[in-house]
Design a protein around this nucleic acid. Structure first.
Lengths: 127, 127
DNA sequence: TATCATAATGCAACTCAGTTGCAAAAATAA
DNA sequence: TTATTTTTGCAACTGAGTTGCATTATGATA
């Protein structure tokens, strides 16, 4: 359990816990699991994002969320299957693969997101 | 001018040209520049995407598009300023920075998108 | 415990990017 | 020219995410 997760409000904490246990989820998943209004889900997701407790992964249609405890869940690329729309978390990049951001001095960088698109193994079999 | 751009339909071609000349644009930009209905813009963008003539960059609120002529516009990371929402094209990764995708054998990869978020120089000055 | 202030929630209405059905217009074929 | 196919405009729709507001829950304070 991450230090970060202490001192959260009730619903924030529940969301953080669900994401810790289930990996990557979208707002609708969370709404169903928590049985609360979608406005409540989105409001809590926003405050968790602001506190940098969760990360957002944008896809074609909706956003997904995952916990941001660097030790337990280091930053990693995501794979989006264009057929089934499922999101897969990929292995974190190895040290030598890590992108060198030091050229980009014109920007104050706060986050990086690598999205790889294609077709997953399951869908490859089916089509 | 890319080979790819030959044999396009009229509106497809106009969009491809605008993107070649202007870099990165969104659907609304294109609608205004072309003076056509937004449905037409989106339909043409979709077919250009399918033909792999343009690339799509997803951001928080809307998508942006850029031409996909590998020589003239190689794949590169994008920077999204969280303040002004502007999208910047960054220098392509150097050879040693290029991500090694060979581990990800469970997936048939078709595209990669690296989005870096933060605050751009302009906004840094202002706030 | 009762009272007050503040924060969190539910609900409904809204926004806005993107999609879709359909009829009209344009392009192409015959 | 006429017939067929493709593209467009329009208007209505979809669905993710937001917002205003009244209600409920929480927490502080006396």
């Amino acid at each position: 359990m991450c230090e970060k997760l202490k001192n959260l409000k009730k619903t924030e904490y529940k969301i953080a816990l669900l994401l810790s246990e289930n990996g990557i989820l979208n707002a609708n998943d969370l709404q169903n699991m928590l049985n609360v209004d979608k406005a409540t889900v989105y409001r809590n997701l926003k405050s968790l994002l602001k506190k940098k407790i969760i990360r957002e992964i944008l896809t074609d249609e909706k956003s997904f969320y995952e916990i941001d405890c660097n030790i337990h869940n280091p930053i990693h690329p995501h794979f989006e299957c264009v057929k089934c729309k499922k999101i897969y978390c990929l292995k974190p990049l190895s040290a030598q693969d890590t992108i060198n951001l030091s050229h980009y001095t014109d920007f104050e960088i706060s986050s990086i997101e690598i999205i790889i698109k294609g077709i997953c193994n399951e869908c490859k079999k089916q089509f």
